[in-house]
C-alpha cells in the first residue's frame, strides 16, 4: 500500500513491476493512468495542478484504506503529480493488485473515482482566454456516489 505526491513524472512499467516484485500471491493487477488532454488551445494548452500538502497525503491514504476494507487486495498504489503539466503528460496512476481480477478491476476504478472527489487538488487550465480554474464536474460526483454503501 503506497501513495506518492510528486512533481516528477513516473514510469508506469517500473511502478507496476515493483508492485508485484517477489510476490506469488497476486493473480491480477489493474491500473489507471490519467493524462493531460489537449483541448486545442492555441499555444498548446497545459495546466498547473495545485494541492494542499499534508491533507493530500492524508486523503490518498484514506482512499487506499477504504479500498482495502472493501476488496481483497494484495497491493495498491496511487501516484499523483502536481505543478506544471503539458498535454500528453501523465497526471495520476492508480493500481490495484489482488488474487482475483474482479477485485482488482473494481478497486482500481474505485481508487480513481474516490480520489477525484476527495483529494485536495485543483487544476488551473491554460485556455484561449487565459488561465482558468477547472470547475468540479457533476459526473465525477455521480461516479463517486456509485461506490457509496448503505442507505
Amino acid at each position: 500500500m503506497a501513495i506518492r505526491v510528486q512533481r516528477e513524472d513516473f514510469d508506469v512499467g517500473t511502478e507496476l513491476a515493483r508492485l508485484t516484485e517477489k510476490r506469488t500471491d497476486i493473480g491480477a493487477l489493474t491500473s489507471f493512468v490519467g493524462l493531460v488532454r489537449d483541448f486545442g488551445t492555441p499555444g498548446g494548452g497545459g495546466m498547473t495542478l495545485e494541492h494542499y500538502p499534508g491533507m493530500t497525503e492524508k486523503e490518498l491514504v484514506a482512499v487506499e484504506r477504504e479500498a482495502l476494507g472493501r476488496w481483497e487486495l494484495s497491493a495498491t498504489l496511487i501516484i499523483h503529480r502536481y505543478g506544471r503539466l503539458e498535454p500528453g503528460e501523465r497526471i495520476v496512476l492508480c493500481a490495484a493488485a489482488s488474487p482475483h481480477r474482479a477485485a482488482a478491476f473494481e478497486a482500481c476504478h474505485f481508487l480513481i473515482d474516490w480520489l477525484k472527489t476527495r483529494a485536495p487538488f485543483w487544476k488551473l487550465e491554460d485556455t484561449a482566454q487565459g488561465q482558468k480554474w477547472v470547475e468540479a464536474r457533476a459526473e465525477d460526483e455521480t461516479a463517486a456516489k456509485r461506490w457509496r454503501t448503505g442507505p
Binding site: Y52, M55, K116, T117, P120, F121, A136
Partner: peptide, 29 residues
C-alpha cells in the same frame, strides 16, 4: 472547509490552534 486537514461540516467546532483550509470543490485525478 477542512479543519486540521480533515473535511469539516458547517456546525463543526473550531478552536484557536486549528489549521483551517478553505477551498472550492476538488478537481484532481
Amino acid at each position: 472547509v477542512a479543519v486540521n486537514q480533515s473535511y469539516a461540516t458547517a456546525d463543526q467546532p473550531v478552536h484557536a490552534g486549528d489549521e483551517v483550509a478553505i477551498f472550492p470543490p476538488v478537481t484532481g485525478g
